[in-house]
Simulated scan of single mutants.
Amino acid sequence: MPRQTRHSIVWNTRFAEIFRKRSQTQAKLNAPTLVLVAAIAILTTRVLDLMLLFNMLGVRGVMDFVHRSVQTWSLTLIFLGSLVMLCIELRCAFVIMKGRNWGRWVFLATQVIAVGYLWAASLGWGYPELFSIPGESKREIFRSLMTQKLPDLLVLFLLFVPSRSRLFFKLQ
């Protein structure tokens, strides 16, 4: 066999091995569309919320908000806790795309904490001047809270209810 032919056979074999390994890796990472939509929705809503907040408040308003948030230790803890929850939610979105089951449960826990705190703060059991939902009655506050959390409820639905989503997280 000529030298050139042996070289091309070896190269073709290596080339085939690379593609075989790549296709096996991709097969493990193929997430169902609903899971990907849910993870992208988490990322999009969080980033869009921040952009809209910064646009609405401006630089001066953001500085005033941060200044008001760090006037007492309890307000500082609440402010830092909300930033930590934001980072955890963003991390959950990336982990969910990888198929880690704990990501969707942690995201569910962050939503339960957020709804619980917003509900308590709106009823006057927390610091309503920092995080509260305006309303005349408990029913009106609850309706407004659920309207605000509707995108997150849809994301949770996409992660927990469809059988393809549940199967994806069981197999990973």
Rank of each mutant, 00 (worst) to 15 (best):
Leu130Ala: 12
Arg14Pro: 00
Pro134Ser: 10
Arg14Tyr: 04
Val106Gln: 01
Pro162Val: 08
Thr45Pro: 05
Ile42Val: 14
Phe168Pro: 09
Arg166Asn: 04
Ser69Tyr: 07
Lys98Asn: 06
Cys87Ile: 01
Phe65Gln: 10
Asn55Cys: 01
Asn12His: 05
Ala121Phe: 00
Phe94Cys: 12
Glu129Phe: 15
Trp73Asn: 10
Leu108Gly: 04
Phe94Tyr: 12
Thr76Ser: 11
Ala93Asn: 06
Val10Cys: 07
Leu36Phe: 03
Pro134Trp: 07
Cys92Ala: 09
Ala109Lys: 07
Ser8Leu: 15
Gly99Thr: 06
Pro151His: 13
Lys21Ser: 10
Leu52Tyr: 10
Pro2Gly: 10
Pro151Cys: 09
Arg100Lys: 08
Thr44Val: 13
Phe168Ile: 04
Gln172Thr: 03
Leu130Thr: 02
Arg143Pro: 03
Ile9Val: 13
Ser137Gln: 09
Phe160His: 06
Leu130Gln: 08
Ser8Asp: 12
Gly58Ile: 05
Arg166Thr: 04
Phe107Trp: 11
Leu48Met: 07
Asp64His: 09
Gly135Trp: 09
Lys98Met: 06
Trp73Ala: 09
Lys149Glu: 09
Phe142Asn: 14
Thr147Gly: 06
Ala114Asn: 07
Thr13Arg: 14
Tyr117Glu: 14
Phe65Ser: 08
Trp102Lys: 11
Lys149His: 05
Phe79Tyr: 05
Thr13Ile: 15
Leu77Thr: 02
Ile113Ala: 15
Val35Ile: 02
Thr33Arg: 09
Leu108Pro: 05
Val115Phe: 08
Ser137Phe: 00
Phe19Gln: 12
Phe19Asn: 14
Val84Asn: 03
Val66Cys: 01
Leu130Arg: 03
Met97Ile: 02
Arg104Val: 05
Ala31Glu: 00
Asp152Tyr: 11
Ile133Lys: 09
Leu48Arg: 07
Ser163Lys: 15
Thr5Phe: 03
Val84Pro: 01
Leu80Thr: 10
